[in-house]
């Protein structure tokens, strides 16, 4: 057995033991099922959510907000990052704003977006976008400013001008920085969408979570947390494959 398979097996056994212990303690009454329902009950709630089809519109709403926010955030972050790195005057204006936005927990903007944009998709999109855009802005801005000067000089001595430098040095260098943060960006986009729904909405996993919390439904809460975890892990795996494909030179 390979060491990776052995490690996976050990983790699986540890998880099964933990769930078994939790199930036993809940069943013999050491855990109050109101606060910590047994895993079997959580699984049943999860099954009902999926089998009844109730989960899909909510998952669809969250995924839409997260993906759209991710794309918009990437576009905005890359655009502003390049603009600031290439224009010192613009950098003077943008950098303090971005530093401030980076320093605060940006999810606190969620109520403001609801006031400005309503409880529909727009406010979730805005939150996901700003979470991603600030992260990507710094990836691009730093990526360009800290580009390896030896490569720049190399291309210049080969006769390359600004356009060639952009194509051969700056864009690949920045791509590496952005892809290095892509997994975090995916997580941020999902966080933005769920938190936005949690604050005010009529659809989405965040909305369901908020509903579960106000009705003190711990089983539903745990089931939803599980759904979100699985979804994000799936996205992480996809992001990693994308990163490995686009940064083949780094992994070779």
């Amino acid at each position: 057995m390979t060491s990776a398979r052995a490690r996976s097996l050990r983790r699986g056994i540890a998880l099964a033991l933990l769930l078994g212990l939790w199930e036993t303690l809940a069943r013999i009454g050491w855990f109050d099922p109101f606060y910590a329902p047994p895993p079997s009950h959580v699984a049943q709630v999860l099954f009902e959510l999926v089998a009844s089809g109730e989960i899909w519109p909510h998952l669809g709403a969250t995924a839409t907000a997260a993906f759209a926010g991710l794309l918009l955030g990437l576009g905005l972050g890359i655009g502003l990052g390049f603009a600031a790195a290439l224009s010192p005057r613009l950098a003077e204006l943008l950098e303090p704003v971005m530093i401030l936005l980076n320093a605060i927990p940006r999810v606190i903007l969620a109520p403001l977006f609801v006031i400005w944009l309503g409880i529909g998709l727009a406010s979730k999109l805005a939150l996901a976008t700003i979470l991603v855009a600030v992260l990507i802005f710094f990836s691009v801005y730093n990526g360009i400013r800290e580009v390896d000067q030896r490569l720049v000089e190399r291309v210049r001595t080969l006769g390359g001008g600004r356009r060639v430098l952009m194509r051969e040095v700056y864009i690949p260098s920045v791509t590496a920085w952005v892809l290095g943060n892509f997994k975090v960006a995916v997580g941020f986009a999902f966080t933005g969408a769920v938190v936005g729904e949690f604050v005010a909405s009529s659809r989405g996993l965040g909305y369901l979570l908020q509903f579960a919390q106000t009705t003190y439904n711990a089983a539903l809460t745990i089931a939803l947390i599980f759904v979100i975890m699985v979804f994000v892990l799936l996205l992480f795996a996809l992001s990693e494959r994308l990163e490995r494909r686009l940064l083949a030179w780094r992994y070779s």
Binding site: R150, L151, E153, R154, G159, E168, L247, W249
Partner: peptide
């Protein structure tokens, strides 16, 4: 443009 420059570091593009 007819001057070739061999640097101390090889400075090759790592992504090429």
């Amino acid at each position: 443009r007819d001057v070739g420059f061999l640097f101390q570091d090889d400075a090759l593009l790592p992504w090429r």
